[in-house]
């Protein structure tokens, strides 16, 4: 049955070449932890992606209960965490996953750096990777405010003050992020929009470019 469905689609769209290219590409010995245990360092990139998937899914589900509004945000987070079944786990995944994804990405960056994998011809992929790093930090910063608790509020205030101290553009950047004179209703909805739409959109595009480049250049050779 499945085979028939596959053949039906394949006849019309010729998907086999794409699929075989993905499935059959060679994974060299030096990145395979089954052969060299030290090759586990090559897992960090994949794990970063895995946790990113968890973040996207748990984030999507969190918005079923979350309301980005200064009156209701805190109550909705408290409700989804304490009243909704498995709320602790879903919010926990998103909260701890945010830290874990930074850790994994950090380790992945260090692996790439110390194995010199950013050198010619992979310069562009390194740059895209750094951009992903910044987008992730931006996601962390904007997401931190959303529960609208004291930790979030005051940490964001400090962050915005730091942005404010940048010469020339600082005050404008701060105003643009704050959306007003004070950290309040407009700030929260702005941070929500940036956290949920703008940065994830950029992240997906960059991740796509990252993977296409890896696939077409192949993994860097052994040291």
């Amino acid at each position: 049955m499945l085979q028939k469905m596959y053949d039906w689609v394949d006849e019309r769209l010729n998907i086999t070449p794409m699929w075989r290219d993905l499935a059959d590409h060679e994974v060299p010995e030096h990145v395979n932890p089954a052969h060299h245990f030290s090759a586990f360092v090559y897992c960090f990139g994949g794990l970063t992606f895995f946790i990113t998937v968890i973040q996207i899914l748990s984030g999507m589900f969190l918005t079923m209960y979350y309301v980005p509004d200064i009156i209701n945000a805190y109550e909705s987070v408290k409700y989804l965490q304490n009243e909704v079944a498995f709320g602790v786990i879903v919010r926990g995944m998103h909260h701890w996953g945010a830290s874990l994804v930074i850790v994994m990405m950090f380790l992945h960056t260090l692996r790439v750096f110390f194995t010199g994998a950013y050198k010619k011809p992979r310069e562009l992929n390194w740059v895209v990777g750094m951009l992903i790093f910044f987008v992730m930090l931006g996601l962390g910063f904007t997401g931190y405010l959303l529960p609208w608790d004291n930790t979030a509020y005051f940490a964001t205030k400090v962050g915005l003050e730091i942005a404010n101290s940048v010469p020339l553009i600082g005050p404008y950047v701060k105003m643009l992020l704050t959306g007003g004179d004070i950290v309040g209703a407009q700030t929260l909805s702005r941070f929500f929009a940036i956290h949920v739409f703008f940065l994830p959109g950029a992240l997906l595009g960059l991740l796509g470019a990252h993977f296409v480049m890896i696939r077409s250049q192949g993994i860097s050779g052994p040291l």
Binding site: Y74, Q81, H95, N150, T151, Y153
Partner: peptide, 9 residues
Amino acid sequence: HPSPLTDKA
């Protein structure tokens, strides 16, 4: 470890 949530801002 439930995610922390301090008092409302």
